[in-house]
């Protein structure tokens, strides 16, 4: 069975340089984020974040809870538009196009930039329909069965569910549900997949299979993953951004900020910032 992924002890502490990380001049920028500040009802959740995210790499966003990681990643496909009091300032250039600019359609943005959520949220439909729903809605109806099978295969779920595609997705285990959500997201062939703590509700085996998936799929997709699990970031990410809380401002409020952003290997071995070092070595507190 494909679920029989063994947890290899050496991978847990694997901080060797990622073979796939190309040198800076050969990275292609997908997101160019400039001075992004995001507020809920006037209260800033993240302040002045600037960074670039590169194509066909896995970029991890780590940091303590409350530092705005989720807010940040939800800005990247305008998921925050659904929150009434949300406002964003600054620019998020996606292939040079400002996602918050005039005339940009958030629906089209999300069609290109998919998302997998913290808690698995399959639709209360059959396994097949979960994957097929987006395809049908987006008019990708030619060869529907093939597309569904392909997506489920890519998400390493096909072998487990191929005989019971008509079964309700809600009857799957948590790990299977999350892989179904990944299959659902990649079925519509996005360019970027955002993952907001995709493994936080999963057991280690399911977590491991999802990490394997990202390794497999990054040839085709760009991944941005939020995680509070440093080991996970070290295992899957090429690049890592460390977010933390800023010191209290005049009004006594703290907001999330980007502390350091670099190759994963560098962040975990020789971070430039003291706060990063404290965090990755577990001295944060």
């Amino acid at each position: 069975m494909a679920t029989a992924v063994t947890i290899q002890p050496e991978r847990r502490v694997d901080l060797t340089p990622q073979a796939t990380l190309p040198p800076p001049e050969r990275r292609e920028t997908v997101f160019d984020i400039r001075g992004l500040t995001a507020r809920y009802g006037g209260v800033p959740a993240i302040s002045d974040v600037s960074m670039e995210i590169y194509e066909n790499l896995v970029t991890a966003v780590i940091g303590p809870s409350g530092c705005g990681k989720s807010t940040f990643i939800r800005c990247l496909n305008r998921m925050n538009d659904l929150v009434p009091a949300f406002r964003a300032e600054g620019e998020i250039l996606y292939h040079g196009l400002d996602l918050h600019g005039p005339g940009i359609d958030p629906v089209a943005v999300r069609r290109r930039i998919g998302m997998v959520f913290q808690k698995p949220n399959p639709f209360p439909k059959s396994i097949y329909d979960n994957v097929a729903f987006g395809l049908r809605a987006l008019g990708m109806k030619d060869g529907l069965d093939g597309r569904v099978e392909h997506a489920l295969t890519q998400a390493a779920l096909w072998d487990e569910v191929k005989g019971r595609l008509k079964m309700s997705a809600l009857e799957l285990s948590g790990g299977q549900q999350q892989r179904l959500c990944i299959a659902r997201a990649i079925a519509v062939e996005p360019d970027v997949v955002l993952l907001d703590e995709p493994a936080s509700a999963l057991d280690p085996i399911a977590t491991s299979s999802i990490e394997d998936l990202m390794h497999e799929l990054k040839r085709d997709y760009t991944f941005v993953i939020v995680t509070h699990n440093m080991q996970q970031a070290a295992r899957v990410a090429d690049m890592t951004a460390f977010f933390s809380l800023s010191p209290a401002g005049e009004d006594g409020r703290r907001s999330g900020m980007l502390v350091e952003y670099d190759a994963t290997q560098k962040i975990f071995t020789t971070p430039a910032d003291r706060r990063t070092e404290d965090y990755v070595t577990g001295r944060f507190g």
């Binding site: 050969r26 292609e28 997908v30 194509e55 996606y94 292939h95 040079g96 196009l97 996602l99 005339g103 940009i104 359609d105 958030p106 629906v107 089209a108 943005v109 290109r112 360019d191």
Partner: peptide, 22 residues
């Protein structure tokens, strides 16, 4: 090898489609 990615071309669609959904 900075090939022009297909996603670059697709990015333009974000604007072309506009915000209006009938």
């Amino acid at each position: 090898m900075a090939t022009t990615s297909p996603s670059l071309a697709r990015a333009a669609e974000l604007r072309r489609r506009g915000r209006f959904h009938p």
